[in-house]
Nucleic acid binder design. Structure first.
Length: 444
RNA sequence: GGCCACGUGGCGGAGUGGUGACGCAGCGGUCUGCAAAACCGUUUACCCCGGUUCAAUUCCGGGCGUGGCCUCCA
């Protein structure tokens, strides 16, 4: 089964062949840890986890390296920390540390609840500052970066093919720039590699004074540290194409004699919520954390995979309900599967640029064994109790009520049996009479 | 303003130059004391206007709509 992936670099689907089948390398831009991750952040986590699992299936679990970083140096973090400190007499740097630690821990918990495997490595920016400084020095030595007023900037004009990922000619971008250009920049599009820090901002000693790295350099450095100069796949949200990924390319290629950073660039589409774009002002900012309070992680995962990863997607309550119903039906039958196997239809769908909606359609047509195997390949666990409602239900009491109702039915006292059924339904317990007796489920 | 993506039935959502995926809902049926569930069957579509073609939902051009990027962003 040959794997084909859409490559943003060429804007077309290409056959995927890793540089080294014994070490397939993938990097995905992870979260900036200053606030709860929202449901849009869950999309790349889930989508690239499916790709990770598919690659492990094809090349063997020990032959795939998946790196997802944690951005814990960032001005949004610093701003939030200042807010959190308020008037209190505590060290802001300490607040920064607490904030990132806490947010990081919640993120880990949340993505795990969504059924994602832990990546092979989860490097943190704060642990790679020396590597970033080294890369910046290399860029300065190569004549691709310059120092100005305590900043170090990438000299975009020196990189002839700058803009090749986003396909934006440099002169066009300069003409369309809508922001005031910092006076120390040679060109409007030059971006920061290093900037100075004051006493309320985390900083590290460097040849350019105490400061901190710009955003883009961390990914370039961590990729190099974990996987070398050229990797197979680099992923992230489509909004990262410009400027983040464009700048990563400029830095890494600049520091590596022009060797490509990644051979395949993959980008997931955006998410709307109930037809509207998610924003704090609209008040429809949905975090993964709060969704997980009401919904099983598997349901959120399934709902995400019902749309192709490159398509724009609308996240809705109706969709989640439908996802839950489908998954519940499947789990009922698939938990009994003794010999799961991967169906060809499913594998073909996933191999065609991760066509998960088609893969799900294949599961609807699949045998029981293929259903079980397919669910597991996609990261679902039919054996788990994750679909059970979080609401506390008294199983013993329900069983007793069912017994009483069946006794009433036997005596043809239907008034009483219907009363018991309605009473349970009022508590959200839906009874189902089947050939093998009466079962129940929590109705939503 | 510049660049880019998307627009499929009541809903979700694949796909294709010619035989109307798949799921949900609806409808009909089996089952049931009645329901629910389950199972069987089944109706409904390709934003608009041109062009290319024997044939377009699928290719090309224009329009409209939605969203993204150009500044932090999954």
């Amino acid at each position: 089964m040959s794997l084909r992936l859409y490559n943003t670099l060429t804007r077309s689907k290409e056959a995927f062949e890793p540089l080294d089948p014994n070490n397939v390398r993938m990097y995905v831009c992870g979260p900036t840890v200053y606030d709860y991750a929202h449901i849009g952040n869950a999309r790349p986590a889930i989508v690239f986890d499916v790709l990770f699992r598919l690659l492990r299936h094809i090349y063997g679990p020990e032959h795939v390296t998946y790196v997802r970083n944690i951005t814990d140096i960032d001005d949004k973090i610093n701003a939030r920390a200042l807010e959190l400190r308020g008037e209190r007499n505590v060290d802001v740097l300490e607040v920064v540390r607490e904030l990132t630690e806490r947010t990081y821990a919640v993120y880990q918990q949340d993505v795990a609840a969504l059924g994602n495997l832990p990546p092979t490595f989860m490097p943190r920016a704060t642990e790679h500052v020396p590597q970033m400084i080294a890369m910046i020095r290399t860029l300065i030595d190569a004549g691709l970066a310059y120092e100005a007023e305590g900043h170090v900037l990438f000299d975009v004009a020196k990189k002839a093919d700058y803009g090749k990922l986003s396909r934006r000619p440099l002169d066009e971008m300069i003409a369309g720039a809508r922001v005031d250009v910092a006076p120390y920049k040679r060109e409007a599009m030059d971006f920061v590699l290093w900037k100075p820090s004051d006493s309320t901002t985390p900083g590290w000693e460097s040849p350019w004074g105490r400061g901190r790295p710009g955003w883009h350099i961390e990914c370039s450095s961590m990729i190099e540290a974990a996987m070398g100069e050229t990797i197979d796949i680099h992923g992230g949200g489509i909004d990262l194409v410009f400027p983040h990924h464009e700048n990563e390319i400029a830095q890494s290629e600049g520091a590596h004699h022009g060797h490509p950073l990644a051979r395949f660039w993959m980008h997931n589409g955006f998410l709307n919520v109930e037809g509207e774009k998610m924003s704090k002002s609209l008040g429809n900012f949905v975090t993964i954390h709060e969704l997980l309070e009401d919904w099983p992680g598997d349901v959120l995962r399934f709902n995400m995979l019902r749309a192709h990863y490159r398509q724009p997607m609308d996240w809705t309550l109706a969709g989640m309900k439908e996802s839950w119903a489908t998954l519940e039906r499947w789990y009922d039958v698939a938990e009994a599967v003794s010999a799961p196997r991967i169906g060809e239809g499913l594998l073909a769908a996933l191999s065609d640029d991760l066509n998960t909606p088609l893969a799900i359609a294949e599961l609807h047509k699949a045998s029981l064994q293929e259903l079980g195997g397919g669910l597991m390949l996609l990261g679902f666990n039919p054996m788990s109790e994750r679909l059970a409602s979080k609401k506390a239900v008294n199983k013993v009491e329900i069983a007793r009520a069912i017994e009483a109702r069946n006794a009433a039915r036997k005596a043809k006292n239907f008034k009483e049996s219907d009363r018991i059924r309605d009473e349970l339904l009022a508590q959200g317990i839906q009874l189902k009479d089947g050939p093998e007796g009466t079962t129940w489920e929590v109705k939503r």
